[in-house]
Design a protein around this nucleic acid. Structure first.
Lengths: 229, 229
DNA sequence: CGACTTAGTGTTAAAGTTACACTAACAAAG
DNA sequence: CTTTGTTAGTGTAACTTTAACACTAAGTCG
């Protein structure tokens, strides 16, 4: 009991909603709690913020400690400070969310977590604390975000086909898109570079490969270009 | 020195960017700090979160204590936890923003503030801490928000003219709107009720008065109606 | 009653969005 | 080597939305 303060302080935590994408669909990374409270229940990975690390660092650290996931681009979602959200004491949590390519990230349970697993979005368990609500908010935010920012090029291989790109959007937005309109729109943005290559080893006509042009994307972003899908 | 914890905890504060609207334009409520650090400098009102109050409550309380402002609709903006943002110790702050009708809110400096004043957005002093950045983020968020939500009907009298409504949008968005297009769009949303009344005491043709139809607005919102201006 | 001020109104061109169906390329099977 | 199956790739037309633009109407004031 080493730290003393004149006034009582809420505990401060970070929680990370990590969405993972693969061919099967959109998933979320959850951990099974090894400790009370909610021992044995599934939860969003997260933990206490240390006094000498930034919020972003804390989120990255906790994510790695509990699930093995590294170098994820986390974005702040919101901060929740309801009085009774943690039965132990007053805990305020800063929630983050991220979207990763599932095949790139092998998870592995560690500190404070019995297990870390990807759950399909349509087959989620009831979560500990108020994590259901946080997850729901994160999902809404992700869908809103993907509509006006060409997020998620990091989710595809370096070279990808337009079909792969479209599928990614369809999975995240949870609706079908028109092939021709999608191609028109995405090519019209001018952030894709057409390669002199086609996909290999397919049992049908091979599709052309494209590369995401990051420099061009940044240039357009600065000009306030609208990337709405 | 009454409260002891096993691990060091960051202090937790809330800060409120309150935008005020009147005929002159958009203003921000700032306080002059009465205490160190940054004593004498202007800052966004805010203060420490108590362990037994929610974040929203803390924001409302601090705003009232420091500026006299009550019953403001605050919305969470972001949470900032940079390590050295406060010279005293590690402080994490949850930032809020709000938009109020200036004539409704007489301010008055109180606790920890020497003075509380409205500053025009184009004539701001340098602020304490990282409050310049927080204010800038809040302004961007306000402009983004006003474009797709009919925010700010609370900023007008109960009965208002379309010209008043348009002026409000123009001030917040900081650009001129076409009168006919604006009227078409806003009336087309169906959230305004035309009254059998016109404005009084004007030295020219009197404009028709309208009322905001809150019930209809909520109904449409649930249906995912797009209120983009 | 003339001058002044703001209210109120429609149309058109341009841009963007949506819906929709066929041919091209290639591999695999026979 | 021909047929079959599968996905790639392409254009147009209807519709909707946006943007630009100028005059008459109503009322006050002097």
């Amino acid at each position: 009991m080493a730290y003393k303060y004149e006034f009582a302080r809420p505990a401060l935590t970070v929680d990370c909603v990590v969405f993972g994408l693969d061919d099967e669909g959109l998933k979320v990374l959850l951990i099974e709690r090894a400790l009370e409270p909610f021992r044995g229940r599934w939860a969003i990975p997260g933990g206490f913020v240390r006094v000498d690390e930034s919020l972003d660092d804390a989120a990255l650290r906790e994510l790695q400690e509990e699930t093995g996931l590294k170098k994820v681009f986390l974005e702040q979602l919101c901060t929740v400070g309801t009085l009774d959200r943690d039965p132990r004491e007053r805990v305020v949590t800063v929630a983050y969310y991220a979207l990763v390519r599932l095949s790139n990230h092998r998870v592995q349970a560690a500190t404070d977590a019995r297990e870390a697993l990807w759950f399909a979005m349509d087959d989620l368990p009831t979560l500990a604390f108020d994590h259901d609500q946080i997850l729901e908010s994160a999902y809404e935010r992700l869908q809103a975000k993907v509509r006006y920012q060409p997020i998620g090029f990091e989710l595809l291989p370096n070279k990808f086909t337009l079909r792969q790109l479209q599928s990614m959007y369809e999975i995240i937005l949870d609706r079908e898109l028109d092939k021709r309109n999608f191609r028109k729109k995405i090519l019209g943005m001018g952030v894709l570079t057409e390669l002199d290559e086609v996909e290999a080893d397919v049992a049908h006509r091979a599709a052309r490969l494209y590369r995401f042009n990051k420099a061009e994307y940044r240039r357009l972003t600065k000009q306030g270009f609208n990337f709405e899908i």
